[in-house]
Design a binder for these strands. Structure first.
Lengths: 350, 350
DNA sequence: TTGTAAGCGTTATCAA
DNA sequence: TTGATAACGCTTACAA
């Protein structure tokens, strides 16, 4: 069913129906009524390809994330979709599997749809991807990098937070509780740059305070199992370590469960901290100290800023979003009487 | 950059470049080389809207799922995306938030892109959605309903499994272990029809064996908390119940954790079974008996069958995919020495 | 308030 | 092996 057929039913021409669809106020009430009926009877569905080709712009925003299956990004996507939907924009999603090569590929694929705006994850891109992003931005397509907030930005707006600072905060938390021999368990995924940066911040803060830091990488495969294995290798090879931070809550939860099974006292023998604030962490005993990233807010804010950029024609603005350190039982101070409450991260315009 | 500009660079006309892009073998080697160079130099990106408008068909498959954030569907989407990608098809994703109304809306939105094929979740649709799906199918767009496999199909191919049978299998498992007073904790989401059907099957099998079944609904909000609360209300209002099945592993895990905290012996005082085989279930002590649905296989198989339908022009075929009951410690027979091994579900063509 | 004409960037068809 | 021409279904710009 095309516009022309609907128009025939309503005894007008196609352009009038098109106009009614976009600006109903511009057609006479009687005509509008006939068009409404015709639309109903024919079950007309506007052809987006044709509309966007003729109009010269799409109503689609493309987002590229590392993994759909990672729940942390699922919430970001949800926030993004919510923001866009309110403006009648559609979301096209692509995932890279944490591969820079696939990022460029996926970028090329979505660019063929000529999206109205672009959201990518992180600030590290292959040369090919970077070139595509720059071209897009140069041709007026707003681009936002999600989840990051770092000085070495490549000229794109960033909506996220500083992962090194987050890592430092976790270290600080452990240092304040008297720990001097720390460990950081990295993600097994080499391309999870943000986890690595949190580790960098963690290590830097610890060393600055005169503490030692052992870094090891989690095994690939099931994250719980990897966390369990990491606990063993930690206790085996570095028995002096008294506190460990993990790249995410799944690793940390695995370690907690293994500690439970092996009668390793947490936090007395080993304090444990995670990242991400996954729902499970609050349920475990001891409950898991973690850092809550603004998972959904990143998506929502990205959406709002892209919309604004589209509307105004100006490049989008980035911003730092606050995270929150959630001290719980797994790092409770064995000497004193527990945690010191919540500690919000920094926020403010870029 | 348009095809015409590339063509000018290569000293041919647009159609030759277009041909080179689709069937390189059809252009002379020397010309091909010039075109390749021109493509490179100009950084040409094909305009999908124009291509699909002219070609009369898209290379996009649309999938509609209840929730992106639900990990169970994330794996299905992954499988689907993998299958499609191998054929150069792109995936457009829409989520409904378990609302039938939004399903029709989202369906209308994606139909505007004239997808090559359509994958929806489940067999229950609003009248509006049903009409859209029928129209699509009638106009030659293959449609598959994922996750379901039921006799009252509305004429669409189904790739999934029979949830009543899955529910019956869980009940059977508990009955075999001597339980006669059972409970089923439904999902708090009223529109999760599949969880309800599993409950129906569970209840039917239990009653057929002369056992009693109490059904209650989990509270909305955090699933772990809902599981904890469900355990309490179960122990409080129905102390005679000796085994409980939950609509998903998160509820069940919450119950397990609460039982642990409250010194309720599992499985001795209460046997607990879940659904979904989430990674956590294997980690808990007692480990969680669950039923593993073919999460990823559903997506993969749907993709393959849609591709085949597109290729052949015939309507897609559905199929039943096997699930697996995973008996673990949370339902171990207190009388005997443990579980009886894995029990695969039924499989075969529809 | 409605309509006409042109064109968006590509592909199908047919011709050379 | 390459090209000319005519769509595809819609919107923009302008005219009536």
């Amino acid at each position: 069913v095309t516009l022309a057929e609907v128009a025939a039913h309503a005894q007008v021409t196609a352009i009038t129906v098109s106009r009614f669809l976009r600006e109903p106020a511009l057609v006479a009430p009687a005509t509008a009524e006939r068009i409404r009926e015709a639309l109903e009877r024919t079950g007309y569905v506007p052809n987006r390809q044709a509309g966007q080709l003729a109009g010269g712009r799409s109503n689609m925003v493309a987002a590229i994330i590392p993994s759909i299956a990672n729940s942390i990004f699922a919430e970001t996507v949800q926030g993004l979709a919510d923001a866009l939907q309110s403006q009648g924009l559609e979301l096209m999603l692509a995932s890279t599997g944490y591969s820079q090569e696939r990022e460029a590929e996926q970028l090329r694929a979505v660019l063929g749809w000529f999206p109205r705006a672009l959201a990518v994850t992180g600030r590290r891109h292959s040369a090919a991807a970077l070139a595509l992003l720059r071209d897009a931005q140069a041709s007026g397509v707003p681009v936002i990098e999600m989840w990051d907030q770092h000085a070495d930005a490549e000229g794109f707006a960033q909506v996220g937070f500083d992962h090194e600072a987050a890592g430092r905060a976790v270290a600080q938390h452990l240092l304040e509780r008297g720990h001097r021999r720390l460990a950081y368990v990295d993600s097994g995924v080499a391309e999870d740059f943000r986890a690595r940066e949190r580790g960098d911040g963690f290590a830097a803060a610890a060393r600055a305070a005169g503490a030692s830091v052992l870094r090891l990488a989690a095994a690939p495969g099931d994250a719980f199992d990897a966390g369990r294995a990491a606990l063993h290798s930690l206790l085996g090879t570095a028995p002096a370590v008294t506190a460990a931070a993990f790249a995410n809550d799944h690793f940390a939860a695995g370690a907690l469960l293994e500690a439970q099974a092996g009668a390793v006292a947490v936090p007395q023998r080993l304090a444990v901290a995670g990242f991400g604030d996954f729902a499970l962490g609050r349920q475990l005993r001891p409950s898991l100290t973690t850092l809550r990233p603004p998972r959904q807010a990143i998506g929502l804010e990205t959406g709002l800023r892209l919309i604004e950029a589209v509307r105004s024609g100006m490049p989008p603005q980035g911003c730092a979003l606050p995270w929150e350190l959630l001290p719980r039982q797994s790092t409770a101070d064995a000497r004193a009487g527990g945690g010191s409450g919540r500690r919000p991260g920094p926020a403010g315009a870029q």
